[in-house]
Design a protein around this nucleic acid. Structure first.
Length: 276
DNA sequence: CGTATCTCCTGCAAGC
DNA sequence: TGCTTGCAGGAGATAC
């Protein structure tokens, strides 16, 4: 499941391969993912153009040319694989892009078995007003006052703090795994109503979010490179998960048993003794 | 508007 | 061994 650290690592890897290079071809093997793929618009705005910038906003990967932007989301199961081969080598490859580099054309294969991902395009001046982008919360690793922001946003909110953190309109990039982990580290119970957290508790939560995401980015840097590395774990396989998936195991702080329950349809893990 | 639920999809694991 | 069942989950859409 690509979370923010995986998308950040992929962005950096794609930047290395693509930035400043020309996108010379694109082949599509299906017409829709989560939404219809704007294939003609992609050809107009991206193909034949130099990729001026590869960037990221939330879990959206952004490619920019002189004529517009491509917005890519990996959904639940998406990945972009680099290969010297133009032919797809993996099942569920939905499109392939060719990038001209000093050492010949390199191919980027978008693979996404569950097809929760998307590919959209927009004009150069439409990105920040795009409906997927415009209402997003701050980037947790760039925000200078994340705790203050979370505190202000949470006033009078009765939603569980874990669901609050997973709302991309509040703060981006905190998926289910990292919401569980951040709250465990901060010793805050995931079922607490968001509005009941004290200002100082938000300081602790904000730091926990930033620490767990940064640790995952550091651990996730090897996931791209080429086909031989694609299955080699990105991020959370190498970050020690302290509660996620550890129900009925002992808490590493107090030795009590980690509990699991479903919250808004999502698996939620916590230590009832440590997290208040 | 705030909150909760539904929905898309395939792969995998557990249970019989 | 081979089936069925349930779960995994990002985030927009929908319902209240």
């Amino acid at each position: 499941m690509p979370e923010l650290p995986e998308v950040e690592c992929l962005t950096r890897a794609l930047r290395e391969v693509g930035e400043g290079h020309r996108l010379v071809c694109a082949r599509f093997y299906r017409e829709d993912l989560r939404w219809p793929i704007p294939i003609p618009e992609f050809h107009e705005r991206m193909v034949g153009q130099v990729i001026q910038q590869v960037s990221r906003r939330s879990k959206y990967l952004l490619l920019t040319t002189e004529l517009g932007h491509a917005i890519v989301h990996l959904g639940m199961s998406g990945n972009i694989l680099l290969s010297a081969e133009g032919e797809p080598e993996r099942k569920h490859t939905h499109f392939t892009w060719g990038v001209e580099t000093e050492s010949g054309i390199k191919y980027l294969h978008f693979v996404d078995p569950r097809r929760f991902g998307c590919l959209l395009c927009c004009a150069p001046d439409e990105l920040w007003s795009h409906k997927l982008i415009k209402d997003l919360g701050p980037e947790p690793l760039l925000s200078q006052d994340l705790a203050e922001h979370l505190w202000k946003k949470s006033r009078n909110k009765t939603v569980a703090v874990k669901n609050f953190l997973m709302d991309a309109h509040v703060v981006v990039g905190v998926g289910n795994i990292y919401a569980n982990e951040a709250l465990f580290r901060a010793k805050v119970h995931p079922l607490r109503e968001a509005g009941t957290l004290k200002r100082k508790e938000w300081d602790v939560v904000a730091v926990a979010i930033q620490e767990v995401l940064e640790a995952a980015i550091k651990a996730g840097g090897t996931s791209f490179r080429d086909y031989r590395h694609v299955d080699g774990g990105s991020g959370y396989f190498e970050v020690a998960l302290r509660v996620y998936g550890r129900d009925r195991e002992p808490c590493e702080i107090c030795g009590g048993m980690i509990a699991q329950e479903r919250l808004g349809g999502r698996a939620t893990y916590y230590c009832d003794a440590c997290q208040l």
